[in-house]
Nucleic acid binder design. Structure first.
Lengths: 113, 113
DNA sequence: ATATTATATGTCACATATGGCATATATAAA
DNA sequence: TTTATATATGCCATATGTGACATATAATAT
């Protein structure tokens, strides 16, 4: 695959965003719900300033949307596809942890290991 | 999705590994070739110690395998599926950059934007 | 105006990542 | 044994990320 540098650098930025358990926990909490900050705070069990800070990062990189209603700010996944990618990564590491061989499609085979 | 902390932390470690353009360039170069360090150095245009260092990280996290033959060390993608995940991320950011709406499957609709 | 609640921002100490460069190790050839 | 080549490792300055905490802002109610 031919990849431009600009694209690669953007992808790397998103990977940095995903390189933090708190942010991923927040994303997963938002999987099925739109939620305001206090609701997120209660559910992910992190101090409120930490949650606001991580939400700001998720928002800056367009992983969540923001909807202000009165004093409450409701956050929502911007692109559910992101969580599919995280799911794929969790699947990958769960194989690594169990020491299982990687699943191959069709008749692909390992040459050696 | 219910995710254990251990799994989440492992996934985050892999995201950190992918959070570097040099490492991703190396992974992409290995997409179609097994290659020794000097070949990688020539192709990704980075100083040799940098390439060795990044390869050591990729190896530690099982993204590449290593095969020593004489003085040469041949590296190979351990799991091509990783590159599929990177492809998905590149697809994601290319939509973000272009400001395009996220592609939705079937009849899914945005509630608002 | 004051108080209350929701959220965001700033600061700080600490840890970790980065890239550049020098040098060490290992294998093979002369 | 010496030399050359391939690769790995170590050191360093700098940058960036982390979580804890205090405090600021913003909207609403009294």
């Amino acid at each position: 695959m031919k990849v431009s540098n600009a694209l690669l650098e953007e992808a790397v930025k998103i990977y940095k965003v995903l390189s933090n358990t708190n942010r991923i926990k927040i994303l997963y909490f938002l999987e099925n719900n739109e939620a305001d900050v206090s609701t997120i705070v209660e559910n992910v069990d992190l101090p409120q300033p930490m949650v606001s800070h991580q939400l700001a990062i998720l928002y800056r990189y367009q992983l969540v949307t923001r909807d202000k209603k009165g004093t409450h700010v409701y956050y929502c996944l911007d692109d559910p596809h992101i969580l599919e990618m995280v799911d794929a990564m969790l699947g990958h590491v769960s194989h690594e942890i169990k020491g299982e061989p990687h699943p191959y499609k069709d008749s692909e085979q390992r040459l050696s290991k």
